[in-house]
């Protein structure tokens, strides 16, 4: 059996809030995200060979709706999201950590190398958890000390998206990493836009990130590339971890 000559994959986790507030056109638009991603990947064979996608939805609990997979494989059934309950960030972060850990371990056991995973986290509300609880769960997901090698070595790049009632200051704390060579950003529904347009814009950002990441891997970069602030689809605004909200 091959040891490690299977190539290098880039996993994307699309995490979608399915609390009751996401009802109506928001949920419908969210359900169009993965079909749009699939279409884009199908047209990019270089990329199709090396990206993997997973869909997780969360409410009071979090569920893996699409286990990490090659979405062009025969037999892949894209999930249809339905609503339930509240908005527990803790459940999403905990499930993400266990999924990423087991997925990366499995991929490595199968002989693949793995780029740092990217999480696209879409929410329209404030967490129903205690602040300290979701902050702690997020730290468990994203903290790693390279020197002592403590924490979660497979921590993902985390890109929050907020629509409607999402609190910018809360989501801003989810940007990870905030510094270094490739800081992530968050994306918010613009003030003059509606949530459905913003979610459709998020699908575009996700797709352009996936495509740009594929091309940047050609240029030797590792991991994901976010579209620059000038290239944003209508309905969205982009912020860094340092931006102020007034």
């Amino acid at each position: 059996m091959d040891t490690s000559e299977q190539g290098k994959l880039l996993p994307f986790y699309v995490v979608i809030d399915v609390s009751y507030s996401m009802s109506g056109v928001k949920l419908d638009t969210a359900n169009q995200i993965m079909p749009a991603v699939l279409d884009a990947v199908a047209k990019a064979p270089i990329l199709a060979d090396k990206v993997r996608f997973s869909v997780i939805d969360f409410s009071d609990d979090a569920r893996v709706r699409l286990p990490l997979c090659d979405i062009l494989d025969d037999g892949v059934q894209l999930p249809s999201l339905t609503l339930r309950g509240g908005t527990s960030f803790v459940s999403a972060f905990r499930l993400l950590r266990t999924e990423i850990e087991s997925n990366v371990k499995q991929l490595k056991a199968d002989g693949f190398l793995v780029h740092r995973p990217a999480v696209f986290f879409i929410s329209d509300g404030v967490p129903t958890d205690q602040d300290s609880a979701w902050q702690s769960a997020f730290a468990d997901l994203t903290t790693f000390d390279k020197v002592s090698r403590t924490g979660f070595s497979m921590y993902p790049n985390f890109v929050p998206f907020g629509v409607d009632d999402a609190d910018p200051r809360t989501l801003q704390q989810l940007i990870h990493p905030t510094g270094g060579g490739k800081p992530m950003r968050m994306f918010l529904q613009s003030k003059d836009s509606d949530a459905a347009a913003a979610i459709a814009g998020m699908a575009e950002v996700l797709i352009s990130s996936v495509l740009a990441s594929g091309e940047s891997m050609t240029r030797g970069d590792s991991g994901i590339i976010l579209p620059s602030g000038d290239d944003l689809p209508p309905g969205l605004s982009s912020y860094t971890a340092d931006d102020d909200f007034v």
Binding site: M1, D2, T3, S4, E5, G7, K8, G111
Partner: peptide, 12 residues
């Protein structure tokens, strides 16, 4: 070199 890796697999 990357697909050859350690030279012990199918590419090797």
């Amino acid at each position: 070199g990357d697909p050859l890796h350690a030279g012990t697999g199918a590419v090797g």
